[in-house]
Amino acid sequence: MDLYDDDLTGDGHWAFGTGFADPLAGIDAPPASPELAAYCLALGDDALVMSHRLQEWCTRAPELEDEVAIANVALDLLGQARLLLARTGRGEDDLAFGRDAAEFRSVRLAEAANGDFAHLVVRLLLFATWRLAILGGLRDHPDPVLAAIAAKGVKEVAYHRDYAAGWAIRLGDGTAESHRRMRAALEALWPLVPDLHADHPGARAEFETVVADVLARATLDAPATTGRAAPRGEHLPELADAVAEMQSVARALPGATW
């Protein structure tokens, strides 16, 4: 039996298809306005950079079930990033591999370097809660493509938020050690929350209600708000290393086909 006799590009030759089902099949996509393109780029960069930070967790998770779950979240966000970057009208790979870190539009919460598992949980809780509130509102966006991306993303990010909330409660209300680590992670990441509210004021009410509920069940207190809101385009220094790593192979082989 030779599986390689025929053309290898068609999905029919692969057990489960070569790529991923196109969630935008059948949706008419006129060119994006500059405002829509800029908005999709920002939401796409959030997903791309957050996915990168989760990819860095690969083979480091505390349990195999979490290894699978973290990879799943990273894959979902990567999928969202690809659709959103494509909606800008520029190629997804040109945007991911052709820009310098300074040109990224991600929020600083997605950029922060990884810490321990409590840091992953707190960051994902804040990020997913915020993003779910945004995507929920975008499901009736006038652009049919963005609306379809949001409709798909809501189901995914709802799971991300549940996963993070479940762990936030277990760790906050676990041992003295896990409680201490959760408090430290909250202290470290809370100063980045004002960026989110400045960027999407409309998502703030839902964010605050959900986060307060989870923290209460986790027997944790929200830190007193400190820190000023940084606009998109202002980055944490560690973004540059993440982007350099992401682009290392693509940039080392100019003109290559992947």
Binding site: H52, Q55, E245, V249, A250
Partner: peptide, 22 residues
């Protein structure tokens, strides 16, 4: 190589593969 994959499609394929291994 997941964080270093040279295209987003290759990144998704590799990430899904490593997840399957887990």
């Amino acid at each position: 190589w997941i964080t270093r994959a040279p295209s987003l499609r290759r990144k998704a394929i590799l990430l899904a593969k490593v997840q399957d291994e887990a």
